[in-house]
Design a protein around this nucleic acid. Structure first.
Lengths: 212, 212
DNA sequence: GTCGATATCTATCGATCGGTAGGTTGCAAG
DNA sequence: CTTGCAACCTACCGATCGATAGATATCGAC
């Protein structure tokens, strides 16, 4: 069966996916890019290795020269996405900012990743718990936990310095992340609003409920 | 491939799924219940008709006596879920309540549906845009739109009567619904918190940002 | 010019899947 | 006692899928 999951037109990625067998190999990187587009559009099971090969313009067997199996392609994409996401968050959230500004920077970093790497992000967001390989799955889980913990730390900081009232940190972080994650289900690059402005507005709205 | 999507132990449904070929047929209803469990746990493509038949305790071909194909089983489940959800919302949100109370009742109705029909809800929430049949898909889309519009109406009401400040109604409704929908990705019936209390706390937190 | 590594190909396998054809059983109505 | 139909069965088909085996092509190093 071939079911449409998302209609995604991919921008070219400025960053290079790392890890797996793709390290510095342009053809492997191309396979990852095309696979991400197809996974995002049709889902993992809705994408055959033949589909990927056709998109790249090579034969199916050639795929197996670069990746040991289909699952490795998928887990490499998911890992690359979460790696890039956490890197962006660490890059944007730092230094002397208020907790409010940090929370907004956090959301903007997330949104930047969405818009600059939509196919990778959609593949990861919609299928990050569908990873077969236990090692890769554990690594992704650890990175997602660290990512969520970063936001919790920002909120805790805001409570400690009096910017925010006493509140349930876990719930508050989860609310913001839920909004960001759910964007993968409805936001599309060609839509009227940029991902960054939506994410920023989400945080501004929700953070008002954090104030004393 | 068989990938785990969710670990769901299903409570028995108090309500009867309607529509499709299941109308009042206990065996058809059983097929729907078992299918919902499997779809929620392994996804649509991760569930074979043979899996469903085994779970019910009959042979594969017998499934086709009650449903014309696998897609019909799926769309019947999704339709039943969204139908039940909107019915619950209409039942709980009515009469002379403040907009705040209505919003919380809205979220509680959503959460009640999650906890009383977890397999149906997970199947619908994770795969409602994977419906093949255009008619069913349009119907589901219409019901989801109406459901979201109900929440927008509540928020607009709150703005008009002064409970809430002027705010972006679309964004605000989407924030709440994002939190509720994302619960399908992490909340499990056996967890420490009830779906109702989580949903209620989400709304209480976010709604503080709505106040003047 | 030869060798070896990398990249790609053709051809095919075994398994699984959704779905169908057509027979069998059991029971209720006449 | 027979007819008819719902419910279920056995057996099978055609298509597709992920993956493999093994041949070929390209090209830089020596």
């Amino acid at each position: 069966m071939r079911r449409a999951v998302a209609d995604v037109s991919a921008p070219s990625n400025a960053w290079e996916p790392t890890g797996g067998s793709s390290e510095g190999n342009p053809r492997a990187a191309e396979i990852l890019r095309e696979s991400a587009k197809l996974f995002a559009a049709n889902g993992y099971d809705g994408t055959s290795v033949q589909d990927i090969a056709s998109a790249v313009g090579i034969k199916k067997a050639s795929i197996y020269h670069f990746f040991s199996d289909k699952a490795e392609i998928h887990s490499t994409i998911v890992l690359a996405s979460i790696t890039r996401l956490t890197a962006l968050v660490h890059e944007k959230v730092q230094g002397r900012m208020t907790a409010c500004d940090k929370a907004e920077a956090f959301a903007r970093a997330h949104a930047q990743h969405i818009s600059e790497s939509a196919p990778f992000y959609f593949t990861a967001a919609l299928g990050y718990n569908e990873i077969a390989d236990p090692n890769a799955k554990a690594k992704v889980q650890r990175m997602r936990d660290g990512y969520e913990e970063t936001l919790r730390g920002i909120i805790r900081e805001g409570i400690e310095n009096g910017e925010f009232r006493e509140l349930d940190v876990k719930l508050a972080a989860r609310a913001i992340i839920s909004c960001l994650n759910w964007m993968a289900r409805w936001w599309r690059p060609n839509g009227p609003e940029t991902a960054e402005s939506i994410a920023s507005n989400y945080v501004k709205l929700i953070i008002r409920g954090f104030l004393p």
